[in-house]
Design a protein around this nucleic acid. Sequence first.
DNA 1: GCTTGACCCTGGAGTGACTACAGGGTGTTA
DNA 2: TAACACCCTGTAGTCACTCCAGGGTCAAGC
Lengths: 162, 162
Amino acid sequence: MRIGELGQATGVDIETIRYYEKAGLLPEPARRNNGYRAYGASHLERLAFIRHCRALDISLADVKRLLEFVAHPEVDCGDIDCLIDAQLARVRARLESMRALERQLSALRSRCGARHSAGDCGILHELVAAAHGEACACHRGVPPEQDKTATSDMASAGRRKA
Amino acid sequence: MRIGELGQATGVDIETIRYYEKAGLLPEPARRNNGYRAYGASHLERLAFIRHCRALDISLADVKRLLEFVAHPEVDCGDIDCLIDAQLARVRARLESMRALERQLSALRSRCGARHSAGDCGILHELVAAAHGEACACHRGVPPEQDKTATSDMASAGRRKA
DNA sequence: GCTTGACCCTGGAGTGACTACAGGGTGTTA
DNA sequence: TAACACCCTGTAGTCACTCCAGGGTCAAGC
């Protein structure tokens, strides 16, 4: 099948397919007389494998390693476990920071209800206050990293009126 | 203060500071006779503002917009709300997919306990099965996107023994 | 005066995983 | 013959940095 058909069958953009080939994840397919790439079932499968791994957010470098395990099933699989464990640890760490982020943004969002000028906007106030190292709604409880005192146009920005 | 001092004070890498300047987020500072950048309190504050926004995962483009609100407090703040709302929506969507990802990886991880050859590895089996469109532990319940049947070396990879 | 070492400068390249585009060729249908 | 969908290669752009080469500046110590 042609590249467009492979893309259709797998839901993968043809640019991405060519990218995988260049990156060494998909083997170079045979070519037709007109130079078009000619894919077979094995390409389709391999591409599906890659996409499934990517859906699990596994990096292309790690997908490459997994493909080597597929090609060499006699190898000890301890490294596969490590790879998945590391991936799981990464995902869990990111999950934690995303949760914190969600809390912070929610808190920030609650600072501003009705429409008014930016000078009176609680969100902007909070962000500017955070720049001063003051406790902000979004990072409340988290010790501020800054301890500087400074006066500038930003310090008064939130106070000026239109 | 010099760039190194500003970096120290804010915990920001000096390369990143120069990057922000080139990207138009930090105004170009004055220069000493020797060409060194000379920063003041306003720069420190602005940099802290940027970093706080980045900690909330707000893109540099959006930080730029927020900085314009800081400079023009007379403007209606509706756009700030939209910006934060959009950010919150992005974060929540990502959070959801991260949660699903965590579940999927956990399920996948539980497929392989003791050490053995890759050919017997449940993780690899699952990943290959997923490439065939079979229901996999990681995406169980989720209808498979692929419906192709294919035979290749990948199909038998998980079955061969060392 | 000389060396050492910390600090600063610019400009450019690299990261990951694509995505977009320019400028061309091929194949089918009307 | 033209229109149009599809394919090719090669290059550049995205985001937010990060790293590096190759140089200049400055204070302290010998």
